[in-house]
């Protein structure tokens, strides 16, 4: 054990963050402000997610960290080893074995269970920010459920690209009340936001926490004549052959040969095992 307090943050800070998490769970989709701390990593590397994870961890937890579905990127590896060091918790790359999963940009393919917590790293929590730069105004819009602007964004997509081109961070209406930004997960994952697991979202730089309690309704915004589609690349994983998973396109050699493979590395390996 190191000289750090368990999971790096001091207890009063964790208490403050837990309060924000509880409030977020009580008002699904509502962005709760919290006093984000300086973390020993730069903004954009998951400081929001790390603080939420730190506030959730208990010594008995098993932690998994993924980045774009992968357990072995720099970001995932360093966060995993960070908590192994400052909390001494067990870590894993197996979705089924983890009790807390911190993620950047994906929901694991393996269906989550009600005893699991999924923590998202969020760069920009405000879905209305694209069109309305004033924070005072966006807060008022959330308070009054004035979400016409969200559809203006989708309208612009269709007008410019002939279809809704938003392919990640696709906005959705939570519990019939708050429009939220599901973080930059591909829209393929949007239908999978309705889950038995608790889902927590942390934005460190923007100092916001929000949450989805288990089985909360999450309705992706769309138009009657341009309904939401959970799209993915049309192909099969070159490694495991899966056609139902979210695929990354990879340039395989200097000739520009392209191939697809599962973005969720753990899931892909499990299928091949």
């Amino acid at each position: 054990m190191s000289d750090y307090n368990f999971a790096y943050l001091d207890e009063p800070t964790k208490k403050m963050i837990r309060r924000a998490i509880l409030k977020g769970l009580a008002v699904p989709g509502y962005q709760v402000p919290f006093a984000s701390r300086e973390m020993p990593m730069p903004y954009g590397w998951g400081t929001g997610g790390v603080q939420v994870t730190a506030a959730c961890l208990t010594p008995e937890d098993t932690l998994k960290v993924i980045d774009q579905g992968s357990d072995d990127t720099t970001n995932a590896v360093s966060i995993r080893s960070f908590f192994a060091k400052v909390a001494g918790v067990a870590t894993t790359t197996r979705t089924a074995e983890a009790s807390v999963i911190q993620t950047r940009h994906r929901i694991p393919e393996t269906p989550l269970r009600s005893d699991q917590v999924l923590v998202y790293q969020v760069p920009i929590p405000e879905p209305l920010r694209f069109l309305e730069p004033r924070e005072t105004e966006t807060r008022r819009m959330h308070a009054l459920e004035e979400y016409g602007l969200m559809h203006v964004k989708l309208y612009e997509d269709i007008a410019r690209h002939g279809a809704i081109a938003t392919s990640y961070a696709y906005p959705a209406l939570v519990n019939g009340r708050h429009v939220f930004d599901p973080s930059p997960i591909p829209r393929f994952d949007n239908p999978r936001l309705e889950s038995p697991a608790i889902q927590l979202f942390g934005a460190g730089r923007e100092q916001r926490i929000y949450a989805l309690p288990p089985f909360t309704s999450v309705q992706s915004l769309d138009f009657d004549d341009h309904p939401f589609e959970a799209s993915k690349a049309d192909g099969a994983c070159a490694l495991c052959g899966a056609t139902h998973t979210y695929l990354d396109e990879i340039v395989a050699d200097d000739q520009g040969t392209r191939r697809f493979q599962c973005s969720d590395t753990d899931y892909c390996m499990e299928r091949r095992a």
Binding site: L131, E146, G148, V152, A159, F223, D225
Partner: peptide
């Protein structure tokens, strides 16, 4: 930063219009 059509359509969408 929104097209002319989006500008004109905003009040409609705010009022619940959902047919592009």
């Amino acid at each position: 930063n929104v097209s002319a059509g989006g500008n004109v359509g905003e009040r409609l969408m705010a009022g619940g219009a959902r047919h592009y």
